[in-house]
Amino acid sequence: MADNVKPRVRVPRDATAGEEITIKTLISHPMESGQRKDGDGNVIPRSIINRFTCTFNGETVIDVTLEPAISTNPYFEFQAIVPESGTFEFTWYDDDGDVYTDSKDITVG
C-alpha cells in the first residue's frame, strides 16, 4: 500500500444549471515508474496510479488511463457540465490494488 496518498480536488461550491465548470484534482503519489534502479542496481518495480475517474450523480465526466510517464503527484484539470445539484465522485486506482476516493457536492441554484 502506497503511504500517505492524499487526494485533493477543487470544485466550485455552486453553479447555474448547465454551467461548464473547471475541476482540478491532485493526488500525492510517488508514481514509481519502473525505470529507476536502487543502490544495488536492481530495478525498482513499477507502482503507479493507473486509472482516474470522475463521475457526477453516477454519470461519467472523464475516465483517464495513466501510464508511468505521468509525473509524481498526478494532476488533472478538466471541464464538467453541471445539469443539476449533486455530487462529484473522484476515484484513483493504484497498481497495488488500493483505491482512493474523494467527493464534492455542488448546488445548482
Binding site: E20, I21, T55, T65, L66, A69, Y75, F76, E77, F78
Partner: peptide, 18 residues
C-alpha cells in the same frame, strides 16, 4: 502517456496534466 476518455458530462473534451 495517458488516455483521456470523455463521458457525457465532460463540458469540453480537454484536459491538462503534468
Amino acid at each position: 502517456v495517458a488516455t483521456f476518455n470523455f463521458g457525457p458530462l465532460a463540458a469540453s473534451q480537454s484536459a491538462a496534466t503534468r
